[in-house]
Amino acid sequence: MPLRHGIFLPPFHPMDENPAACIDRDLELMQWLDRLGFHEAWIGEHHSAGWEIISSPELFIAVAAERTRSLRFGTGVISLPYHNPLMVANRIIQLDHHTRGRVMFGAGPGLLASDALMLGIDPSTQRDRMAEALDVILRLFRGEIVTEKTDWYTLVNARAHIPPYTKPHPEVAVVSAVTPSGGRLAGRYGLSMICVAATNPFGFDALGANWQIANEVAAERGLAMDPAQLRLVGPLHIAATRAEAYANARFGFERYLNYLNNNQPRFKVPAGKDPAEWFVESKFGVIGTPDDAIAMIERLYAKQGAFGAFLHQAHNWADWEQTKHSYELYARYVMPHFSGDNRARIESFDWCTEHLDELAEKRSSAARAMFDKHEAEQKAKQTATPTARPAKGKEAF
């Protein structure tokens, strides 16, 4: 199974930067990834806490799709408890048409408690509300007419206004972190899964269990989970050397960690320990070289088995040009390691090395034969009887 590569863009932008410029840079990143041959980008929805400033992934995707050729886009994710499910279904279907099938629908309960509280939503209800909304959206995608009343939405003979461009409908994915809720929903409907904390030690330990839960629930319903639709997310920054990568990450890594801890304390750096070094040593992510990125993905394979895509958790650890270079190095060296695109070239090179003496002798023999042939032809010309020239008339000239 070929491994696809993409990003998961929350995004993370420090509060001292121009927000319009930050969003423009995110769009420029989409164009850069498209040129480098990345396969997909998932865009988040957030409404508070300061850093994650895209409130509508659908709007962002509509703009980004116009500026790219082949990159596929997913909502990463739409927080379903914040929206009427009919509105979500119609927006995704419209976006499916706008992009001519390049959109994927990622759904989640909503990560930031501060978002839910602004809407008067009890965070303890969000997972159940997500499950209710997802069921309705899938029915609307299939063309069903839905009448349903809950404590947070009412639908009366509701139906999607137009059918999806993608048949039967765009790919649907649910997020999974540590709890089994994502795996249960994915298995119930046979959906894709995005493990957003795959390299986090707690999320890493839960990988196999959540995938197993998804498979068991799917089997109970006569469905089968497809590992090609399993995506694992992890943060990384790479450069030519580890020293260079760490120097690059000094730009913004500590601010990134402080932001995450400001929302939910989870990264407890020991006193006197360098935060970036501790982060890598604890296996939360990678700051290093392309070989280090390869090793991290191989570690995920060893833990999980087959999966379909690795997604970078996009961040601003490094400055813009260094960030772009990190993605370029990944495309140049990490992607072909897993695609095997250079396998035939390497085998050809190795075969030539193995037969070097034989090939050199054949080349030399062929060259000597050509010299011998040329010299023989020259001698034949020198010994040939010259043609007599007429003494007069036009033939003499």
Rank of each mutant, 00 (worst) to 15 (best):
L95F: 00
H46A: 11
H98C: 12
D319K: 13
V217N: 02
A240E: 15
A331F: 06
F60K: 05
H98S: 14
A49M: 05
F338W: 09
M193V: 14
R231T: 09
A276D: 00
R100W: 00
F105C: 14
G187T: 05
H97V: 05
H325F: 05
A107R: 01
S181N: 03
N261I: 05
P235Y: 12
G208A: 15
V88I: 12
L191D: 00
G308T: 02
A314Y: 08
H46Y: 10
M296G: 04
E220I: 02
F38R: 06
A249P: 13
A295G: 09
F251Y: 12
E328Y: 06
A197N: 10
L232E: 06
K373L: 13
P11T: 07
R159C: 12
F279G: 12
G272T: 08
N215L: 13
A306T: 11
R139S: 11
R332D: 00
S48I: 01
P19F: 06
A64G: 04
A367F: 07
I162N: 08
S348H: 09
L155Q: 09
E132Q: 13
Q322K: 12
L27P: 03
L80M: 04
R368V: 11
F251C: 08
I121M: 04
V156N: 10
G203A: 02
Y327G: 00
G305Q: 09
H161G: 12
A380S: 14
I194T: 13
L230G: 10
A369D: 04
W152T: 04
G44R: 00
D16H: 12
P57T: 04
I92W: 02
G6E: 01
P168Y: 15
D274Y: 02
P163E: 11
N263K: 03
A197V: 01
E281F: 03
E148D: 09
I23F: 15
L71I: 07
G190A: 09
M87L: 13
V286F: 03
H374G: 09
V286T: 03
E171N: 13
L33T: 02
W278V: 05
W51D: 08
T199S: 15
N215S: 15
T150A: 14
L117K: 15
L185T: 03
R221N: 11
E58T: 08
A224E: 14
L71E: 05
S365K: 12
A158Y: 01
T385C: 06
H13L: 10
T99G: 07
A62G: 15
H237I: 09
P270F: 01
S282W: 04
Q304V: 05
A65N: 12
V172L: 06
G182L: 01
K303G: 01
V217M: 08
Q212E: 15
M130A: 06
A318D: 09
Y333K: 15
N263S: 12
Y153C: 03
A21W: 07
A384L: 01
M193E: 14
S79F: 00
F141T: 03
G182S: 10
P275I: 00
